[in-house]
Amino acid sequence: MIKIKNLVHEYIRRDENDEVTDITKAIDDVNIEVEKGQFVAILGHNGSGKSTLAKHINALLYPGEGSVMVDGKDTRNTENIWEIRQSAGMVFQNPDNQIIATVVEEDVGFGPENLGVAPEEIWQRVENSLKSVGMWKYRKDSPNKLSGGQKQRVAIAGIMAMHPKCIILDEATAMLDPKGRLEVMESVKKLNEVEKITVLHITHYMEEVIYADHVIVMDQGKVVMEGSPREIFSRVEELGRLHLEVPKITRLAYELQKEGVPLKNGILTEEEFIKELKSAGVV
């Protein structure tokens, strides 16, 4: 679905005389492959290059070196950009700054309108996508009345109405409260499972990573770790050095393990932790 090969992206800062003062490599020789239907999480603290990476997949930025292929199309070819943006929809961080219309249903219709879809078909798509994120009953409301989590779900519905193959969440949960984050993650998980949409979730919240099949950890523009959530979470010390904090329950299990309690590596949820404790004969 998404194939990134040796991607390099440099931010060049110039002074008034147009002379280069500073070059920062936001992405440095990154290779990533995402399969169809996968749920991939990209982790990294601020400035790790993860948002820049997301913009490359949506053809909002073009590769300096290397290549990005989305659904078999190269982002360097400008003829492809609209098809790429349609097949890889993007949800941004600030819920207020990505809703265009004054009514929920009209905002969801904005994408299909841009694609030139016929009116009856647009209404069908609006209905389906609003229902798939559980926002159908708010269709006549003003986005200003909704909570952050609800706004992000509307934004996701707006992307879904374009019938994408892949959704990229670019820190879409960063500005939400815990309840809103849960709402959004559950909608996304459902879309991934039911509609088989490929999801690329970019975040710095470790708790959200447990939804993913595959985790990529980035630091200073490079991929530093890759694997299943369990594999990643069992490397607590290493993550700590990258300023990433594992979920509390994983941390607790890790500390207990260090003290000699026989638990398995990379425990992700409380239920799992309790089960492990029981089978270890501690409680």
Partner: peptide
């Protein structure tokens, strides 16, 4: 907002349909 509109394939009035 401009970036979000770009990402949702907005390219002016041409070829655009109406809900």
């Amino acid at each position: 907002l401009a970036m979000a509109m770009d990402a949702r394939c907005y390219r002016g009035g041409e070829g655009r349909s109406k809900m």
